[in-house]
Simulated scan of single mutants.
Amino acid sequence: MKTKLIKRVPNMVAILAFLALLAGNAFAIENSSRIVSPYWQSDSGSYTFIAVSHTSLSGMASQIGVTVNAIQNDSTAFGTAVTFTIQSGNTERIFIARSGHSTVNPTSIPTGKFIQGTTNFKHGHIRIDPIATTPTDVIGDRGSTTLRQNQGLTGAGFRDATMLSFWGAVVVEQNTTGFAMEFIGDMNDSAAAPVFNGANGSVTGPAAP
Rank of each mutant, 00 (worst) to 15 (best):
T3C: 09
T3S: 15
K4D: 15
V9G: 07
V9Y: 12
L22V: 07
L22I: 08
L22Q: 12
A23W: 10
A26P: 00
A26H: 13
F27T: 06
I29T: 14
S33E: 10
R34H: 15
R34C: 15
P38N: 13
Y39C: 04
W40I: 01
W40Y: 07
W40K: 06
Q41W: 03
Q41D: 13
S42H: 07
S42M: 11
S44N: 14
S44F: 12
Y47V: 05
Y47F: 07
T48P: 05
T48G: 12
F49S: 11
A51H: 15
H54N: 03
S56Y: 02
Q63M: 06
Q63W: 07
T67D: 07
Q72R: 15
T76I: 06
T80Y: 09
T83D: 08
F84G: 02
N90Q: 14
N90P: 02
F95H: 15
A97V: 15
R98Q: 15
S99K: 03
G100W: 05
P110G: 06
G112W: 05
G112V: 01
F121Y: 14
G124T: 01
G124C: 06
I128V: 10
D129I: 00
A132E: 13
T136H: 15
S144D: 12
S144I: 05
S144H: 11
T145D: 10
L147T: 06
R148E: 07
R148M: 11
Q149A: 08
N150R: 11
A161W: 01
T162C: 05
L164S: 04
F166I: 00
F166A: 01
Q174D: 12
N175A: 10
A180F: 08
F183Y: 06
M187R: 15
D189Q: 10
S190H: 09
G198V: 01
S202P: 03
P206L: 05
